[in-house]
Write a protein that binds this DNA or RNA. Structure first.
Lengths: 237, 237
DNA sequence: TCGCGCTAAAGTGCATGCACTTTGCAACTA
DNA sequence: TAGTTGCAAAGTGCATGCACTTTAGCGCGA
């Protein structure tokens, strides 16, 4: 009973495989907002049929990472500037909640796990841009997971990916440098500090990330035609 | 060009049609946690094939309303007691955020719309149980929509439906009576009050709803076998 | 009477096929 | 040359079919 059919091992079915791959590609900026995601190509790339690829795109659309218009090819979502701001506002209230749950309750094992991620961030800070961004996200997701609350974990994870996408739409290439020291401070505050102080620190950290990237709204690379043309639509000539 | 094919009018494609129907059925307790959702029956009921029904179930699973296990029939999700508690915790932080955005900014039109919903709640308070619950939820969703922030709206709507499901799993039949007066007070606080006071009032309201329903964990109708048996697993005999 | 295995019916997992829609390109026109 | 029209290639929307899995019922033995 080693292999039942062609499939055995730890194959977590191809649907979630495709979802994971696209999520990660978006997070690491291998896929950029507006990039096309044809069903056939996707399916072929992962050895599945269009049916599966289509289903995966549906899931990702539900998570806000993919834009799905009828009869048109799916594309990586291109959040507007105000979407980006709203995503970070939401991320702040969710991660404040994470920190509140964790304050004064981190086990030594937790701390070590977080420090390992930060160490990886440190190592990656001069490597590929995408790796640094992914690790920074992993830090926040790991924090959420330490609450042990599945629902909170799900929403924080989702909003973190959407935030990554938003930064990808508006952020300048080098925006995640000092994250390492901020993350270290954060651990210390959560480990020892009172809940509200730690939560405030998380908010300050996320606000800093957002404002480093989301300063000028008209930074997008020529996309968002509707917004650009809006002022011209009212007055003719 | 009246009707292009068999389909015209405002048909919002059958996928979202199925999703909406199931969401509403769950909210109104026509569908209860654990109820079976076979793909064929669903498709047939809505004049679609299994492909569409399956896709719809995927979406609903992503929203946490449906439980999808491989090779097994989909069922309405049966949140555990701690899931229910977490859902309400999350709902509180999200709706506090809604209220913060809205405090002191409700237009007369907004107030009238909210009052109309409350009036409907008042009328329905002795009718079908499901209608009252649906209207109470509509009140909260309408509030979220008044922020005009699509991302916030999406998450609040989703968590409201999940909360409805959680109440369905643990709540006693008559738990939404005094909601009317609480909702009226809430409007007044949001319209006139300072943001944090209004947010506190929203928290108190949701906490009241939760504690009215989520008092005793072992209320579930014989489900949640694992939890029930947990104390017996340790000591034999 | 109660458990236990076996089998048919019901259901899921997924690829494929066909009809329809969009799109890019190229020829045509002014 | 620039704009427009028409057409083929590419892509989506969806139903259906087939292989595999689960499940429920039934008969059999104890």
């Amino acid at each position: 009973m080693a292999a039942k059919k062609t499939t055995a091992r730890g194959e977590a079915d191809r649907l979630s495989l495709i979802c994971k791959a696209i999520r990660r590609a978006i997070l690491e900026r291998a896929l950029l907002p507006g990039d096309r995601l044809p069903e056939d190509a996707l399916g072929e790339r992962f050895g599945a049929s269009r049916t599966i690829a289509r289903h995966a795109l549906g899931q990702l659309a539900a998570e806000g990472l993919v834009d799905l218009r009828r009869n048109r090819m799916a594309i990586v979502a291109a959040p507007s500037f105000s979407d980006a701001r709203d995503i970070f506002d939401l991320r702040i209230v969710l991660e404040r909640q994470v920190v509140r749950h964790l304050a004064g309750k981190l086990s030594d094992r937790d701390v070590r796990q977080l420090q390992a991620i930060i160490a990886a961030e440190h190592d990656a800070r001069h490597g590929a841009d995408g790796t640094a961004i992914r690790l920074a996200t992993e830090f926040h997701v790991a924090l959420a997971e330490m609450t042990g609350k599945p629902i909170l974990i799900r929403y924080v994870t989702e909003i973190c990916y959407r935030a990554g996408l938003a930064l990808s739409a508006f952020g300048r290439p080098h925006s995640s440098d000092c994250a390492v020291s901020e993350h270290l401070d954060l651990i210390e505050a959560i480990r020892s500090g009172p809940a509200e102080r730690a939560a405030d620190m998380m908010e300050a950290h996320l606000e800093a990330v957002a404002s480093r990237a989301l300063l000028q709204p008209s930074d997008a690379r020529g996309r968002d035609l509707m917004n650009i043309l809006a002022p011209y639509a009212a007055e003719p000539g």
